[in-house]
Design a protein around this nucleic acid. Structure first.
Lengths: 75, 75
DNA sequence: ATGTGACTTCCAGTCCGTC
DNA sequence: AGACGGACTGGAAGTCACA
């Protein structure tokens, strides 16, 4: 029963956090790079926001990644 | 001519249209499958709306695809 | 450095049409 | 069947104070 509800939000949020920590950035650092607010990054990582495509792309670019890389289940 | 990053909307929209036509679905068919509004599908394909992650996923599932497949430049 | 509730603004998303 | 417009509602965007 693969619930494909908003697990996609968790997947994306987890990926962002993972990539951010790997690059040793704080949420605030990433927020500045992506031109988004500090608290917003936190909310996205916690899957509390249903993020739009443009902001997803901003975050991906700030992390120097392709958007696809933030949506893969399995590397 | 560096394209702005919002080309991601065009990429996604084009991909959706391509996949939809391949499967011989009308916009209305896809809208019903994805539980979204008919006019909205058209807007997304024309890159007129900044779609949210959950709806992107809904459309991908309605097309029997992974979300990643709708974001690839290159098949 | 991050989590959270509250808040306003504005656009994602719907619904009625017409061409 | 699809593009497009006008009007509307709900919710995402964006921010803040404080824990």
């Amino acid at each position: 029963m693969a619930n494909n509800k908003n697990n996609i939000l968790n997947l994306f949020g987890d990926r962002v956090r993972q990539a951010r920590v790997e690059k040793k950035l704080s949420q605030e650092d990433l927020a500045n790079l992506a031109d988004l607010h500090r608290t917003y990054i936190g909310m996205v990582e916690r899957a509390e926001r249903n993020i739009t495509l443009i902001n997803m792309n901003k975050i991906a670019q700030a992390l120097d990644l392709k958007l696809i890389d933030l949506l893969k289940n399995d590397t």
